[in-house]
């Protein structure tokens, strides 16, 4: 029984990875290649690791497997985002079958500023809670000023 589960996990995982590699080989441009590679690759690795957990049936191994799967699921999209964004802004050409591209004219490569396109529609932007570019320490912080006592008491 366990053997069948392990076999199914390994075979599905390996097949997914093979499809990811085939996708990276065949697909026409960078973002579509990343669609195939990152997610199928992450799911494939996770499935093989789950197969390992089933094969050993041991607490220490299972703990490590959970760590690996969590780590992969957390980092794969972040890595995909970083490379996809860098590739897009460096100017990698998109496939000619691309039907729509709303981002290209909203990006300023000098300042790395990205317009949302909603500035006119929704009025002033939302207050930014904490961002890397807008460090709150460097801005005015009037919430730390002592408040005036209101006249009502």
């Amino acid at each position: 029984m366990i053997e069948w589960i392990v076999s199914a996990c390994i075979l599905t995982g390996a097949a997914l990875m093979f499809l990811a590699a085939l996708g990276i080989f065949r697909l026409p441009d960078l973002p579509t290649r990343m669609h195939a590679s990152t997610k199928a690759g992450a799911l494939g690795t996770s499935l093989i690791m789950i197969g390992v957990a089933f094969a050993f049936m041991d607490v220490a191994v299972t703990a490590r497997v959970v760590a690996v799967v969590t780590f992969i699921m957390l980092t794969a999209p972040v890595a995909a985002h970083v490379i996809g964004r860098a590739g897009y802004f460096v100017g990698v050409p998109l496939w000619e079958g691309t039907v729509k591209d709303v981002l290209r004219d909203k990006y300023d490569p000098k300042t790395h500023h990205v317009e949302s396109g909603l500035e006119e529609v929704e009025g002033p932007p939302k207050p930014i809670t904490y961002g890397m570019a807008e460090c709150p320490v460097l801005q005015e912080r009037d919430e730390f000023e002592p408040k005036k006592s209101d006249p009502g008491g």
């Binding site: 990152t38 990006y107 949302s116 396109g117 909603l118 500035e119 939302k126 930014i128 570019a133």
Partner: peptide, 13 residues
């Protein structure tokens, strides 16, 4: 696939 967040954080591309 997420490409970027707009600078005023209202739109994901």
């Amino acid at each position: 696939l997420i490409l970027d967040v707009s600078s005023d954080r209202r739109v994901l591309f």
